[in-house]
Design a protein around this nucleic acid. Structure first.
Lengths: 230, 230
DNA sequence: CTTTTTAGAACGAGCGTTCGTTTTTATTTT
DNA sequence: AAAATAAAAACGAACGCTCGTTCTAAAAAG
């Protein structure tokens, strides 16, 4: 699975995300016409993610957002009922789409080594495309309202558990070495997260998601696989 | 080097940090008597770090801080001249003491394998003791005032470069395998950071800093060292 | 003309910061 | 040893400003 084939298969564009968001929230969104709504939701979400990445959700004022999205305060309140509601909209839609991408990444694969590769690829590629959302989710989790907080933690632990389960499968079938799978899963998650948390560093060094992915896979597999290599 | 021996050698207690802080900032601090000043600085910094970890620096109001530190607003302003100044005080003092701890960790060691071990230990142990400060620094860096931002980035890159340099030394001397040292340094930093960023997760799983440290060292050395093992 | 969408002034709450006052501590005088 | 005074530290109401949110009127669309 290459990054560009992943990009083609999953459709993680803002346009698509905002259209789904609109269709799933017609009751709460006060705008009727789909095209108008989608166009403005894209402007709002793009601007919100940009501002959240710069200064954080709490420090992003709705006046900043209004300026950046090129919509008045009143107009924006036709799309969400409060600042927290805006957060809920972004979280709900993006989380479900990323989860879908991860699941369909490993779907139909049964060899532990292949499943591990594909899960790591799917995670890195998703976060490459939706980096601002991943970054925002990571940095803001602690200040989310209670329900969103739980969902975010749950999602983090779910991905980690999936990693660990694949490792345990591989160990059970004698394919992987009996190393500490729990800790290996945890630090693998940390490496996956570093890709979207330190994007500035990796871009400056001209390291692509493909480079990073290959390295992480080699690093982990060297530790897990029995040495057939030199 | 064990965690407890490290704790004994470096003196990273709040009491010590605040006393140094006071002595280095006598001009700007409006309180004369050392004992009074140190006692209250400890209250202020402890409370500030606690609140910053809960809700972030921007969302911590000075009224919150005043309540938690059990000091009036006016009294607190005898110790710093603005909210940003409070940040600068915490950053300056803690950063220099952590840097000192890292440097004296590898001082006097010349074998690359030993240097790598000791640097990783010193980093994990420091962040175990000053976890709230490490966490705050990581999460708030992007919203620091310009000068503090640069210093924080510089410190992050310095630690990473030190890791990479040790790896390159080891490779040059034929002790380590010729893997991608730049990327290995980057993901090593990510693993070190995960220890203070996800403390809640590791405490819940009853994983100690010693466990984590041993695992990370084993993981990295397996990748770097030529296989003398099974 | 009716409906949908946008604009931006207005409001109360909470922010960082200031400052005149009170309380506590230390020193001097009786 | 007690009282008086001076110095140091702590207090918290008040100020100007920005925040999230509401609301009415204007503009645009059909």
């Amino acid at each position: 699975m290459t990054f560009s084939s992943f990009g083609r298969d999953m459709n993680l564009t803002m346009e698509v995300i905002c259209r789904e968001l609109f269709l799933h929230n017609r009751e709460s969104i006060k705008i009727q016409k789909e095209e108008t709504a989608v166009r403005n939701l894209v402007k709002i979400l793009d601007a919100a993610l940009r501002l959240c990445n710069e200064k954080g959700f709490a420090s992003m004022s709705l006046r900043d957002l209004s300026r950046e999205a090129d919509l008045s305060l009143g107009a924006m309140y036709s799309y969400f009922s409060s600042k927290d509601d805006l957060l809920r909209l972004m979280q709900g839609q993006c989380r479900s789409m990323v989860l879908r991408a991860l699941e369909s990444g490993i779907e139909g694969f049964y060899d532990p080594r292949m499943r591990l590769r594909r899960l790591i690829q799917a995670h890195l590629y998703s976060s490459e495309i939706l980096q601002p959302w991943f970054y925002m989710s990571y940095m803001e989790t602690r200040s989310f309202p209670k329900d969103e907080y739980s969902l975010a933690i749950e999602a983090e632990l779910f991905t980690e558990k999936t990693l660990v389960d694949i490792m345990l499968e591989g160990q059970a079938s004698g394919l992987f070495k009996p190393v500490n799978a729990g800790l290996l899963g945890a630090v693998t998650k940390a490496m996956l997260q570093d890709w979207y948390l330190k994007r500035w560093k990796y871009s400056k060094r001209k390291i692509t998601v493909q480079n990073y992915c290959d390295f992480v896979l080699d690093f982990i597999e060297s530790y897990l696989l029995f040495t057939a290599e030199a």
